[in-house]
Write a protein that binds this DNA or RNA. Sequence first.
DNA 1: CGCTGTGTTGAATGCCGTCAACGTCGGTGG
DNA 2: CCACCGACGTTGACGGCATTCAACACAGCG
Lengths: 233, 233
Amino acid sequence: MPGLDRSLIAGLDAFEGLGPRELDHILAGARSARYARDAAIFEEGAEATTFFFLLDGHVRVVRTTPDGQQVIARYIDAGELFGIAAAIGRNTYPASAIAAVDCVALVWPTGLWADLSSRFPIFAGNAHKTVGKRLLETQSRMMELATQQVEQRVAHALLRLVRQSGRKVEEGIEIDFPISRQDIAEMTGTTLHTVSRLLSGWESEGLVRSGRQKVTVTDPHGLLLVADGHRRK
Amino acid sequence: MPGLDRSLIAGLDAFEGLGPRELDHILAGARSARYARDAAIFEEGAEATTFFFLLDGHVRVVRTTPDGQQVIARYIDAGELFGIAAAIGRNTYPASAIAAVDCVALVWPTGLWADLSSRFPIFAGNAHKTVGKRLLETQSRMMELATQQVEQRVAHALLRLVRQSGRKVEEGIEIDFPISRQDIAEMTGTTLHTVSRLLSGWESEGLVRSGRQKVTVTDPHGLLLVADGHRRK
DNA sequence: CGCTGTGTTGAATGCCGTCAACGTCGGTGG
DNA sequence: CCACCGACGTTGACGGCATTCAACACAGCG
């Protein structure tokens, strides 16, 4: 394999504050890998032998309940570290990671974590910041589930998705990867039926346009009103 | 103030792997403080000027929604670090901390975090492990909210509380601090009315005994069946 | 050209939130 | 000491939101 070029990662959040020689050193320990759409990058409960940085694509992070129901914990976008069990002293992955589209990632053996994080404390700090952000974001979603109605939760979920993984198109902002009603239901703790009804309603109100595994938000501000419970009707 | 004795903290999880001289050094930067029941130790959104280790008592961690509803994120027990915004690179507290009973805590200025964590990487690692545990636990609660009925969620919450903060008494295991129906509702995303009904029902089935701000689980195994949705009836 | 995954929509059920009223405990001040 | 008051808890009745059950439509694919 040819060496990886530091321009791949220079300037990205996770590598903020590191110099060229440091980036080269970190990259020297990595390989790059491709994952086909719907491939499992790692599985919940498996030994955490590697950690990852997503160069391109979108990854769905999923946990499964004892009785088999799936819950989508989050989506990872290009430019984020993931699978960093080592950073929190765990040796198994707490969730599964599935490629939502064809993906490219950098992959390090977990064994390198201790060396890299002691040699480059800034890198470790950036990873811990990422963990912290995810903790806060998870708490926020927990609060939504605890206090809001389904309609508001789904609206919030869509707004989060377009903000984080949106692509500007003719009619508005489109979610940049295939996402089904079932997926949205698993993010918001409801059923695909309810999601379908909500999207149909919003479509006729001109807030969104949606089709098979596709959602475009055409009126973000209007949707935000719904998300905050300001029902006009 | 007299020096704090290292026997206060030796052997506890957060200080695992540190020697006597290291403990002394860490303690040298701390002061101890008392908080009366219901006192706010810190407030959501405030600048994170200090971080804490709970020596005695129980602390309720609370976030408030934009429209004023409170959600209890977790309870902190004696022997845990908390308010460690510095460990995840934040400079404000993401939640409020309220003393559930009279409490005693060690308090460090946040400014010391960088020094302590670079000087004692083991200490920093222990803190990051704590953050990781809380992320996983928060994810689990999010999954419960997304997939389970109120009855199961409340049962799980009680089981978690007795496991983590239980005190063995004559009739079973009692939650070691005052907790109201409202508190349980705020942990589980329901109303005090529903919690009251559930506890009444369980009391007549012999699973729990409860009174004013008191809950005792008398049949943990039976309650676990309820928590897992094995309703006999 | 059928099959599977995805999406839509109607109808019925039921969980649990809301509204309401009352009971009880404990602390506090006269 | 006792009366009062506020916080906490209980219980019934009602209703609505969302799940469940069911049937059908449509697209992509082998």
